[in-house]
Design a protein around this nucleic acid. Structure first.
Length: 260
DNA sequence: AGTACCACCTGACGGC
DNA sequence: TGCCGTCAGGTGGTAC
C-alpha cells in the first residue's frame, strides 16, 4: 500500500516510538533488499547508536542516526513497521529487526521482498542521486504548473513518475484524478491552467486528508474512489458503474461519466 | 521521450 | 481437496 500518506504515517510512528534509544542489535533476513550495503555494514553502522529524527521524501522514509549517516527504508507494495516489546516471535515476514537496549524493538515487515533497506549520507544527496522529483506535498501551485510545462505523455504516468513528482502511486493518482474529474488517459500537455489548478487542489486535499485519517482505507470518505475500486462498484457522485482501465500493465479505476 | 513488457517476491482467491 | 492461473497499492531495466 505504501504511497506518500502511508509513508508519512510510518515516519510519525518512528518519531513517536523509536527515537533516542540505544540500538543494541540489528538483524536482516533479506539480503536482496539491501541496496549498496550488507547486513554486516548495517549492524556496524547502527549498533550502539540512537535514532534522533526522521524525514520523508515521496515514498522514502529516512531515519537520522545520531553521529552517523541515515537509514533509508522503502516499503514497496507490502512493507510496514511494528514497534513493541521484545517478547515472543516477531511478526511473520519480518525482514529487519532493530532491538533497543530498553527492551523494545522496531521491525520492518515486507510480505513480498519488494522494498529496500539502505544506508545513505543524508536526505538531500539521496534525493539527488536517485533523481527524485519534488515531494508532492512540497509543491505550490506555481511550481506545479511549471513542472508540467512541456511534459509529454499521459497525466497519470506523469503523476506516478517518481522523477517527476515523488510520492504518488497507482491508488492515490487515481484518487486525485477522480477528485479533479480528469481522465487519466489525457495528455499532460493538453491540460489547461484551470485543469492544473483543480488537479493541484485535489492533490493537496487528498494527501492531507489521507494522512489525517492515518492512511486507513476504512476511515476514508465514502465519497472517494478508493472504497469503490471495483468494476462492480458505482461512482459515489453520479452512480455510473466504475470502469477498469489498463495502463502500462497497471489496473486503474475511473468514473467514465465524471472524468473527462 | 514515452510506453510496453519482464523481473523481482509472496500469498490470496477463483475456477476447474 | 488440490492445482493453476491471475492479481495485488512499487520500481528498475530493456527493447522498441
Amino acid at each position: 500500500m505504501p504511497e506518500l500518506p502511508d509513508v508519512e504515517c510510518l515516519r510519525r510512528y518512528v518519531d513517536a516510538t523509536s527515537l533516542h534509544q540505544t540500538i543494541d542489535a540489528v538483524a536482516v533476513d533479506a539480503p536482496r533488499m539491501l541496496k549498496d550495503t550488507s547486513a554486516e555494514k548495517l549492524r556496524a553502522t547502527l549498533e550502539g547508536k540512537t535514532f534522533r529524527g526522521t524525514a520523508r521524501h515521496g515514498k522514502h522514509l529516512l531515519i537520522d542516526v545520531a553521529d552517523g549517516p541515515w537509514l533509508m527504508l522503502h516499503f514497496g507494495m507490502t512493507g510496514r513497521l511494528d514497534y513493541a516489546r521484545q517478547e515472543g516471535e516477531p511478526p511473520r515476514h519480518t525482514r529487519l529487526e532493530i532491538r533497543f537496549a530498553e527492551g523494545y524493538r522496531l521491525v520492518g515487515i515486507w510480505q513480498r521482498r519488494l522494498g529496500e533497506i539502505a544506508i545513505v549520507t543524508d536526505p538531500a544527496s539521496f534525493i539527488e542521486a536517485r533523481g527524485l522529483g519534488p515531494d508532492a506535498l512540497d509543491l505550490g501551485l506555481d511550481a506545479f504548473e511549471q513542472l508540467f510545462a512541456g511534459r509529454r505523455g499521459t497525466i497519470k504516468s506523469a503523476l506516478m513518475d517518481q522523477r517527476f513528482i515523488a510520492g504518488l502511486g497507482n491508488v492515490y493518482s487515481d484518487e486525485i484524478l477522480f477528485r479533479a474529474r480528469i481522465d487519466a488517459a489525457r495528455q499532460a500537455r493538453d491540460l489547461t491552467d484551470a485543469d492544473l489548478a483543480e488537479l493541484h487542489r485535489a492533490l493537496l486535499h487528498v494527501l492531507r486528508l489521507a494522512i489525517e485519517r492515518q492512511a486507513d482505507p476504512e476511515r476514508l470518505p465514502d465519497s472517494w474512489l478508493l472504497p469503490h475500486r471495483s468494476t462492480s462498484a458505482h461512482c459515489p457522485r453520479c452512480g455510473t458503474r466504475i470502469e477498469k482501465v489498463e495502463t502500462a500493465g497497471r489496473a486503474g479505476y475511473r468514473c467514465p461519466n465524471c472524468q473527462a
